[in-house]
């Protein structure tokens, strides 16, 4: 059995007494490209945020490679939802990507030429090198998403959590992003993605977690991505034929 990258035990999160996540146990093996799917309000983003300590769970624990998350932050990179920030903020694409180096720099120390080089490499990887000096509000939605991805790539982490990286991007960008994710997996990284488009799950991912407040199922796509689990998760009789 492969190494476990992320282990979540008994995780429960509630907003105002209403549980958003209920008693989640989850083990994510190292080196998988995993989709988290579920209907709106199923707690997909919440799960990622709780794992990353952005939200405080009322119960449960998270370990990364067997150690508490707090001591493993450098192993973990996060791509938030694009809509979570103000894109009119006065800064450039390169500057946003540079933020990915802040964690390894720690307090007070400023990024230097080494950090800039890493940021430029990441920009190149997502095909945004020529936009480095562009004010971020002048970028299209897909470009903004790529900038966020580049920022996470700069962190050079082992585990990547991404909150809907395909939201509002066109087909070209979607292919570009998924190729980068597949490259990450090939390099032995673990990638966890909140995903909405069920049709593309078998094509893009090798693992999947069905979530609807409770965890419905988790495992390899070829074993568990079936109408039965889809129906259990989405509550309607799911009749879309899925090609495997």
């Amino acid at each position: 059995m492969e190494k476990i990258a992320v282990k979540v035990d008994d995780l429960t999160v509630a907003y105002n007494y209403k549980p958003v996540l209920w008693d989640i146990d989850l083990q994510i093996p190292e080196g998988v490209l995993m989709a988290i799917v579920g209907p709106n309000g199923a707690g997909k983003s919440t799960l990622i945020k709780a794992i990353l300590g952005i939200l405080k769970p009322i119960a449960g624990s998270v370990t990364i490679f067997g150690k508490p998350y707090k001591s493993q932050r450098k192993q973990v990179a996060y791509v938030p939802q694009k809509g979570s920030v103000d894109w009119d903020f006065p800064t450039t694409a390169l500057d946003v990507v540079m933020m990915g180096t802040y964690g390894s720099l720690g307090w007070i120390k400023r990024p230097g030429s080494k950090e800039k080089k890493r940021a430029l490499e990441a920009l190149e990887k997502v095909g945004m090198l020529s936009f480095q000096g562009r004010q971020i509000s002048q970028l299209s939605g897909g470009q903004q998403q790529r900038i966020f991805l580049a920022r996470a790539l700069v962190q050079d982490a082992s585990i990547y959590f991404m909150d809907e990286p395909f939201q509002g991007v066109d087909a070209t960008t979607e292919v570009a992003i998924i190729n980068i994710l597949k490259e990450l997996r090939k390099a032995g990284k673990t990638v966890v993605v909140v995903h909405h488009d069920l049709q593309t799950v078998p094509e893009y991912f090798d693992w999947v977690t069905f979530l609807n407040v409770k965890k419905i199922a988790t495992g390899p796509v070829k074993d568990i991505f079936n109408d039965d689990n889809l129906t259990k998760t989405y509550g309607i009789n799911y009749k879309v034929s899925i090609q495997k």
């Binding site: 990353l52 300590g53 450098k74 933020m99 400023r110």
Partner: peptide
Amino acid sequence: FWKEFKILLFDKDYALTLGF
């Protein structure tokens, strides 16, 4: 704390995951 202020202003949650 220029860098810290900047990242707090732009993306607070992300700053938190970086360990700030």
